[in-house]
Simulated assay, not measured.
Amino acid sequence: MPFRRSDLADLSYFLAIARHRNFRKAATEMGVSASALSHSLRGLEERLKVRLVNRTNRSVTLTAAGDDLHEAIRDPFAAIHEAEDRLNLHRDAPAGRVRINVPDDAATQLLAPVLPEFVARYPDVELDICVDNAMVDVTEGGFDAGIRFGGTVPEDMIAQRLSADFSWVIAGSPAYFERCGEPLHPQDLMHHQCIRIRLGNSRIYKWELERGEESFVLDVPGGVTVNNGSASRALALQGLGLIYMACEGIADLTQRDLLRVTLPEWSSPGEGYFIYYSSRRQVPRGLRLLVDLIREMKPLGL
């Protein structure tokens, strides 16, 4: 059965489902409800008289027919989106939609300071920012770009620096130090309550400390593990334990004496934030303008 013009929207919804293998995430990307997405897919399957997706309570997978359709239309639809981006070059005012995947600290510390100016300058550019600390394939996820620390950027991507390098430190609240004392050496951390971090790859991060030629990599103890910086800071402010954090990420708190850095001579250097995107796709004009503005305003140095 030949495709109809009205099938184009349903096919784009199908591609989102194929990318995410999750109706809720696909619906969020497309800006519709999950029920509307499901209705669209059901109508497409009925018109084509073939099942494209297997759905259970726990998983979403493509059928053999769905795999074939996905392979056949993925690149043509990508070419259509690229053509739209190229047309933006001929508009006086940039327009379009840019989707970015970022960790929570990058969203609050890197993007938040520049977004008011970006929206004022480019009101017709729509930014869709997905805050997610897990490492994702930005191309498969339907994103135009991702932001991560330099050492975690996939090697097959084009990357641009967005911030200066960071200095990683250990900090706690005055209440915590009053109750539990202060470590005098990295090995003392093994007798303290630490708030551990689970990385985007599900691994528990081991704290790295350096002083001259000396270094320690510690699997610190702690009864609470979190997967984002905002939660770490909130718990440290409550006096729960010590945190391992980029100094720049807690500067406002240390300046107000809400948190205090301990073992400062053992701070460890780390790469700053980079934005990365596929070399195989046209870079949307809106994305280039956002990168230029971040580099212009330098919210985390450069």
Rank of each mutant, 00 (worst) to 15 (best):
S6T: 12
S12P: 04
A18M: 03
F23E: 01
F23A: 02
A27D: 05
G31I: 00
V32K: 01
V32Y: 01
S33V: 05
S38T: 05
S38A: 11
L41W: 00
G43C: 04
L44K: 00
E45V: 10
R47L: 06
L48P: 02
V50K: 07
V50T: 15
S59A: 14
V60L: 04
D68C: 07
L69S: 03
A72F: 04
D75Q: 12
I80V: 15
E82M: 10
L87K: 12
A95F: 08
A95Q: 10
G96P: 05
I100Q: 02
N101C: 13
V102I: 15
P103L: 10
D105S: 15
P116W: 11
P116T: 03
P116R: 08
F118E: 08
V119L: 08
A120S: 15
A120N: 13
R121F: 02
Y122A: 05
P123A: 06
E126Q: 15
C130D: 13
C130A: 12
C130R: 11
D132K: 06
N133A: 10
N133S: 11
A134E: 06
V136W: 00
D137M: 01
E140C: 10
G141I: 06
A145H: 02
G146E: 05
G146D: 03
R148A: 15
G150N: 04
T152F: 11
M157V: 04
I158K: 05
A159F: 02
L162W: 10
S167K: 13
V169H: 12
V169D: 14
V169K: 13
A171Q: 12
Y176E: 04
F177S: 13
G181A: 07
L184T: 12
H185C: 11
L189W: 06
L189G: 09
H191N: 15
R198A: 09
G200V: 03
S202F: 08
R203V: 14
Y205D: 13
Y205A: 15
Y205F: 13
K206G: 09
W207R: 05
L209S: 11
E210H: 06
R211L: 07
E214R: 13
F216A: 11
V217N: 15
P221N: 05
G223L: 07
N227K: 14
L235K: 11
A236F: 04
G239Y: 09
G241A: 09
G241E: 03
G241M: 12
L242N: 10
M245H: 14
A246E: 07
G249P: 06
I250E: 02
D252M: 10
Q255D: 14
D257P: 00
L258P: 05
L258Q: 15
P264A: 10
E265S: 12
W266K: 12
S268H: 14
G272L: 03
G272Q: 02
Y273G: 03
F274A: 00
I275D: 00
S279F: 03
R280V: 12
P284G: 09
L287N: 03
L287Y: 00
R288E: 13
L290M: 07
I294G: 02
E296D: 12
K298F: 00
L302P: 00
